[in-house]
Structures are given as C-alpha cells and as structure tokens.
C-alpha cells in the first residue's frame, strides 16, 4: 500500500483553494440556465460537431421551400403567396416530425441514459423546474424551426409589395398556429422520450406515433370522402397531432383546411373540441412528465 502523501500525482498545486462568496442565484436562474442549455442542445450547440448535422440540415430543409416560394412570388408578379402561412407547417410536417423525433430524446433520454438527472435533482431545482425548462426548450426549438420559414415568407411578401395588411394578418395567424403546434409536438415528443433511456427507441416511437396516426386519420378521411360524409372528415382530424392543428386553425384562424375537400370542423362543437383536445394533451403531457420526474430522485 502506498501512503497518500507519497502519491506521485496531483501534487503541483501552487495556488491554494479559493472559496466562493459571490451570489447564489437560486431556482429561477437555474431553470433559465437549463432552458438555455437545452434549447442550444436541440440545435447541437455546445455539443459535438456530429450532433449539429441533423438539426441544421432539418432547419435548412424547412427554410428552403420558403425561399423558393418567395423567389417565385417576386419574379412572377403574383398577387398573393402561393401557400398560406398557416398551411406551411402542415405541408412540411414530415420535417417537423423528424426534428421532434431526433431532438426530444436528446433533450430527456440523454439525461436518463447517462444518469445525469440525479445531478440536477441534488441541486436547488425541483422536478417541476426540470420539466418546465425541458418542455419550454423543445417547444422554443420547434417554434424557431417553424417560424423561420414563415418570417422568410413574410419578408419576401413585403419585398414583392403584396398587400401589407393581408400579409401581416396571415403571418400573425401563422405564428399563433405554429406556437400551438410547437407546444403540442414538444409535449407528445417529450412524454414518449422520457419513458425510455434508449435514444433509438425514443426516435422510433415518436416517428411511429406521428406517422401512423396521421396515416390512419388521412386514410379514414379518404374513405369518408368517397362516401361523401364531409362532417365526419371534420371530426376525424382530432386523432392525430398535425390534423388537430389543422382543424384548430381552420375553425379559429380562418385557414383553409388541408383535409379532403377542405372539410374542416363541421360546426362550433367540433371547432371547440379541437381546442379542448389540444389543451387536454398539453396538460396531460405536462402531468405525465411531472409524474415521471417526481419519483426520479437520485436513481
């Protein structure tokens, strides 16, 4: 056995230990720090170069059609954009789904897999701070992803000297819609990702849920369309995330529905149902995340 004082390493310490008596900023600051770190992490910032590749590609893919649309609008002298602001996210839903599927697990599964969560909960923050920070961070990341192309469209529309009032109203409605979409997608993605420490499972599960639910809703809507039951089409949209947003914005934001025959919610009851279901999913995912982390403790 060696004596500790004979150990060859860690002996060169000419500067002594300095204690810290500066400010300790507490929970609110810690929550904000976690939010910022997670938001940056969603785009791979502060992480390895490899983890920047996918989110940056998705961001570029998301913006590319907007640039093309703007170019078309300016050079063909159109009176309006060929695509509504509210429709953009619906058309590019595959890109958004991929982003949620890849970044929700990176937001929460990583901490579970590498067991970093105990380090958070041995600090002043509580489970609710962790959940709020992660939820807000992923929703913000999604909002950036979906708002950037809308901003490109809006600036392009103004450059093309389209009607200012009409464009501004459309842009504002688009922002409301994608804000809700970001929260909804983030909630669903995080709940699924927080179940498993395995990143691959999380990615697969999120993609499966979004694609299958959308596929199923579209298929059944197609059948209803064939049988000319348009009011059913309007109700069916309640069963997948993106069609929920579509139904909501059709009823509340005066958007044209992407459903077959543009058959949005048939009446006020259906329109309200869209809003209620969205709110219920948001509350539910927050509740589930809280339940998941309240017991997380140190293990």
């Amino acid at each position: 056995m060696t004596q500790p004082d004979l150990a060859p390493t860690d002996v060169i310490h000419d500067i002594g230990y300095r204690s810290y008596d500066g400010p300790r900023l507490g929970r609110r600051y810690a929550r904000k720090s976690l939010y910022v770190q997670s938001l940056r992490g969603a785009y791979g910032l502060g992480r390895s170069a490899k983890s920047k590749v996918l989110p940056m590609i998705l961001f570029a893919v998301m913006c590319l059609p907007a640039l093309i649309i703007v170019a078309l609008t300016i050079f063909t002298d159109r009176k309006d954009l060929p695509l509504q602001y509210t429709r953009y996210a619906v058309v590019l839903q595959a890109v958004i789904t991929l982003f949620v599927a890849s970044q929700a697990p990176q937001a929460v599964s990583r901490d579970l897999r590498f067991k970093t969560t105990p380090l958070y909960f041995s600090r002043p923050i509580e489970a609710v701070d962790y959940v709020v920070a992660k939820f807000a961070a992923l929703a913000s990341a999604l909002f950036l992803l979906t708002a950037a192309p809308l901003l490109i469209l809006y600036i392009g529309a103004l450059l093309a000297k389209l009607s200012f009032g009409h464009q501004t109203a459309g842009f504002a409605k688009g922002l409301v819609s994608i804000a809700l979409l970001s929260l909804l997608f983030a909630g669903i993605g995080l709940v699924i990702a927080a179940v498993t420490p395995r990143r691959g499972f999380g990615v697969a599960a999120v993609i499966t849920l979004f694609v299958i639910s959308y596929g199923a809703v579209s298929a059944v809507q197609g059948v209803a369309d064939n049988q000319e039951k348009w009011h059913v089409i309007g109700w069916l949209g309640l069963f997948s995330p993106i069609t929920l947003i579509d139904g909501f914005q059709t009823w509340f934001l005066d958007a044209t529905s992407a459903f077959p025959d543009a058959a949005g919610p048939p009446n006020a009851a259906a329109g309200t149902a869209y809003l209620l279901v969205i709110l219920a999913i948001l509350a539910g995912s927050f509740g589930l995340l809280m339940r998941r982390y309240r017991k997380a403790g140190l293990s």
Binding site: G22, R24, S33, L34, L298
Partner: peptide, 29 residues
C-alpha cells in the same frame, strides 16, 4: 455537493462545459 456512485457524465461533452453547466445549475452566475 453530491457525487453519485454511478456514472453520470454525458460522453459527448467536455469536462469544462459539463462542470460549467452544473455550476450554473447550482446558482453561480
């Protein structure tokens, strides 16, 4: 301060970045 028994370090982050983050989580500016 708490040092857990198990592994708790994400592999794709440097020690500096990780410890800075943890310091901020403890409330340090």
């Amino acid at each position: 301060g708490y040092m857990p028994e198990h592994d708790c370090l994400p592999p794709d982050v440097s020690a500096t970045e990780f410890v800075v983050h943890m310091a901020r989580m403890s409330g340090l500016p």
